[in-house]
Structure formats: C-alpha cells, structure tokens
Design a protein around this nucleic acid. Structure first.
Length: 492
RNA sequence: CGGGGUGUAGCGUAGCCCGGUAUCGCGCCACAUUUGGGAUGUGGAGGUCGUAGGUUCGAAUCCUGCCACCCCGACCA
C-alpha cells in the first residue's frame, strides 16, 4: 500500500490494473478471465444499477429473469446471431461427475452423463427470450413487451482485463417486442438516450451517440446504436449499445401477432445493454496518478472525516464535535464515514481515501477545536480550505455538485479537444500515432475501406454520429465521395 | 491457435549459469513510543521453491514430461 501507482503517462495499462486492485474494486480470481468484484467496487456498480433501473422503470419497463443456459437448437435459430457468438461460447455437455477409479480423491466427468443436447451458457439472451416471447404473443393486445433483466453472461474471450473485458460479466439486457417498426425504432433511440443521460449525469462521462457500421453491428441486428466515450490514453470505449433487431428474431422464432385488421404480422424487436464495463469507463475517465476520482453521485462514500488527535481524551473531544456533523450530513442524504480507527495515522488515511476516490475529506484536529474550524479537501482538484464548523454542511452540499460538474467539464474538454478533423490519410496516420483520440473523417461507406484502414492503423469506425452534419467530401482513404464525417479511433 | 516469457511466504523479489535445505522489501502479529500527508524501534509468525518423474550422497538449482499464468499477434461488450 505504500508504493505509488504507476504513472498514467508512463504505463497507462499498468496504472489502470494497479488502480483497480489497490482501490479495492476488483481482483483476478482463480478462474481464468473471471474477476472477483470486491465490496467497494460492487457498491459503485449497485449505485449504477439503481440509477439505471429507475430510468428503465420510468419508461415502462419491468424486470424479469431468464435461464443461464440456452439449448443449442435455440441458440442456432437466428443464424447471424449464432455465428457472431459461436467462437466464444462456454458449452455444457455433461451433468455429472464421478470419482476417478484410477486416481483416488479426484473427480472425472462421468461419460455416462452426457446431455442429449448441449447447453450454451448465454453470451446474450435473445434466443431464449424470443423463444419465450413466441408463447406470450398472439394479438396486438399482447404488445409491446418491455422487459429488462439483470444478469451475468459468459463470453470466452482470448484476452481479458478487469472490468473492460472479462470472460464472465454482469450486465442488464433489455428485450422488447413491438407491433410496428416505428415503435421499435423509437424504443431503440429512447434507450440510447437513457444511456447517454446516465453516462453524462451520473458518471460525468461525455459520450457521442451514433450508429455502428455494418462491420461493427451486433450479430442479428439491423442497426446498432451506441454511446462512445474517450479514455485518457486516447482510446475509445464503447460504453453501451441499443440494437434495432428488425424482425430478425421474430422470423427465427416465429413470433407473430394478429393485428386489428386480422392480419398475421411478425413483431419488431430491440435489445439494449450496458455492463460492468462501465466501471472500467468510470475508472479511466476521471482518475489520476494518486488514484480513483469518483463522481459524487456514484461514490459509495461521499464524505470521509479523519480525526487528528493526541491520546484517547483528544479523540473523545473531536468525536463529539464530529458526531454532530455526521448526523447533519446524514439528514441531508449525504453518505459519510467517520474513520476513527486508531490503527492508522492520518497521513495514511488521507492517501487511502484519495486512492479510493472519496470526493470530499474533512479533517479535524486540536487546532480546529480551538478555532471552531474544520479542514475541507476535495479529491478532484486536491485543494484544501479551512472553514468554520457552522458553515461546513451547506458548503459540502454545494461542493458535491461542484465536483460532479467539474469532473464532467474536465472530461468534456478533454474529449472535445481530442476530436481531430482529418482530410487525408497521411494526417490520419500521423494524428493517430501522435495524438490519438477520435478522428473525424470522411468515409466512402464500404466495408472494404473500413477493413483496410483497420489493417493499416488498428483504428475502426467507432460510430457514425447521430448529429453528423451533411458535408460534401472525399473518403480519407479511397478518395470516393462521401456526404458526412464518421468517427474513427483505436478502441478497447 | 502461432511467437516469446514466467512460476520461490499474502504481494513483489534474490538465489539457478557454477548442486550443500532459501535472500531482501512490503504486508501480517505483539509491545512501546507516536498521530496536521503513507511513523519508529524491539521481538515474532509465515515457504511440500507450480507439478510429476529422473540424475546425484545431496536438487529451488541439472534433465524430461505435464499444468498454470503473463506478454505480443489473430479475436472481442
């Protein structure tokens, strides 16, 4: 705990990995590619869940739960979806173990217990859910179905990183079914807007809303909408997706309804999700070389109070004073921790709470008792001031708002200054190599060009921004005509 | 799956070339002194050296097999 973190400027990924572990957010587990989310990390995830869940419910969605396993025959029903995920599926083939006759005390898979049909551990739940929806839908009166589930999924990734890419991860997945294309499209963009609002207002993370190109589209969707964020090292991170599924799953699973006019129609679908990857985005967006910087609205502890004292009597006098402040903060709905442990010194605690990103730290010592003051330190700017005790609670209420706004503004300025317009391929390569960030450039609309650029630069089209303005131009690679700019970046 | 690397205490490591039962730091435990930016001292606990075999009087060290993990590619929310 005494060693400093690696510096972002020297070893960005080392900094990230160490920060996640040292701030007690998560650690690697005994299972390859799977993490243990520790209590402090999980409580941030819970705050995210609560905020999102509320937004989903306010827009008419309800939660349900579907099985972890998907029979292979269902999984393969929507061909593109199956093909897209096939390479990274965990598969259950047996249902029993037995003691190894040749190796005492060890277990082997019982060859007698082979499943008739393999079960896929869900990498996403469209298949099992649409199979279920088939039974739920007969009439237009049964629509829409607006369901979300909070679940874990498994994608057998080659290479994993805590929160950003793990073999098992937690997420929410919304799956909706509608009578008309218009309704489904509205749903798709509505959920995208919710994600963008959540990212900006809760995570203090500015995002670009856009549409994916065909290459980057969700397997089985007609269109994939996304929010894209920029990390401090200049790489982009896909922070959430909302898919317009068209009638693809309705066709695959034969989900039809009878309209008012008595006609049989296939239903229209959407699905949308965000995952524990958001934790990675949150960590990378704001934190510095001293540790985590958390936006106050998602911080499990918003205010920490550290006493500085000599002897038990000294602590008692400070504690009496502090207790009043604690009560007052709690009444205002501010989460506060009074760390009166005698096992660590104040300096140790200061460093510890900075590492953990607690937005506001109060310190009270003998000097303050005499002057009727208290020291207030903010994590985002690392500044300190001494205030009269009487003023501190209203000050903190304001301060938490200020911090939330400040880190958003800081991230926004960083993002905006790292969107570079580029009009030829030499500049494209140069900007990517020297500056990174988003590159706003014209593209001829073909997969071929996109693939070629990826091959040459590792950059992909993150999205076609929804607010892209019409502009006549030429593709940055092929020179073919183009009508608007798209955003390229190297991505996580 | 291709190419490279590493497994020694909770974590990070030295020792390996040249064989003699394991070094140092952090952390942990106890006591004392400390407490306005990661305290100090003294004492202490903790290791089948990844695993299975081989060579040897003797293996962390040499040889062989296996396993795991990490890095670089390919793949990816």
């Amino acid at each position: 705990m005494s060693e400093a973190l690696p510096k972002r400027s020297e070893d960005y990924s080392g900094w990230y990995n160490e920060l996640v572990k040292r701030a007690d957010l998560a650690e690697n587990s005994e299972v390859r590619g799977c993490m243990v989310i520790k209590p402090y990390g999980y409580s941030i995830w819970e705050k995210m869940q609560q905020a999102l869940d509320k937004m989903f419910k306010e827009t008419g969605h309800t939660n349900a739960y579907f099985p972890l396993f998907v029979p292979k025959s269902l999984f393969e029903a929507e061909e593109k979806n199956a093909e897209g995920f096939a390479k990274e599926c965990a598969v259950v083939t047996h249902y029993r173990l037995k003691t190894d006759p040749n190796n005492k005390g060890k277990l082997i898979v019982d060859p007698e217990a082979k499943l008739e049909e393999e079960l896929i551990v869900r990498p996403t739940s469209e298949a099992i859910i649409w199979k279920t929806y088939k039974n739920w839908v007969q009439s237009y009166r049964d629509l829409p179905i607006l369901i979300n589930q909070w679940a874990n999924v498994v994608r057998w990734e080659m290479r994993t990183r805590l929160f950003l890419r793990t073999a098992e991860f937690l997420w929410q997945e919304g799956h909706t079914a509608h009578a008309t294309k218009e309704e489904a499209l509205f749903e798709t963009t509505q959920m995208l807007d919710i994600y963008a609002t959540f990212a900006e207002q809760y995570m203090a993370l500015p995002v670009v809303k856009g549409v994916k190109t065909e290459n980057e589209r969700f397997a089985g969707a007609d269109d994939t909408y996304c929010i894209e964020a920029l990390m401090q090292d200049g790489k982009a991170l896909q922070a959430g997706t909302s898919h317009f599924l068209g009638q693809n799953f309705a066709h695959a699973f034969d989900v039809k309804y009878q309209s008012k006019e008595g006609k049989l129609e296939h239903v229209w679908g959407t699905s949308w999700g965000v995952s524990t990857r958001l934790m990675g985005a949150l960590i990378m967006a704001h934190s510095d070389d001293d540790g985590l910087v958390l936006p106050p609205v998602l911080a499990p502890i918003q205010v920490v109070i550290v006493p500085i004292y000599k002897g038990d009597d000294g602590l008692k006098l400070i504690s009496e004073k502090v207790q009043q402040i604690v009560e007052e903060l709690k009444r205002k709905g501010i989460s506060v921790k009074y760390d009166n442990r005698d096992t660590h010194k104040p300096g140790w605690k200061f460093a510890e709470y900075e590492l953990k990103g607690v937005p506001v730290r109060l310190a009270m010592g003998q000097r303050d008792l005499e002057n009727g003051t208290i020291e207030v330190a903010r994590r985002d700017t690392k500044t300190k001031e001494t205030l009269p005790v009487a003023d501190v609670v209203p000050h903190i209420e304001q301060l938490l708002n200020d911090i939330q706004n400040n880190i958003f503004q800081k991230a926004l300025e960083f993002r905006n200054s790292n969107i570079t317009k580029v009009d030829n391929f030499e500049d494209f390569k140069k900007v990517l190599a020297e500056k990174g960030g988003f590159i706003s450039a014209h593209w001829d609309g073909t997969n071929k060009t996109e693939d070629k650029i990826k091959e040459l630069t590792k950059a992909t089209i993150r999205c076609i921004p929804l607010d892209a303005v019409a502009e006549v131009g030429n593709c940055v690679y092929s020179g073919a005509p183009s009508s608007k700019r798209v955003l390229f970046a190297q991505a996580y």
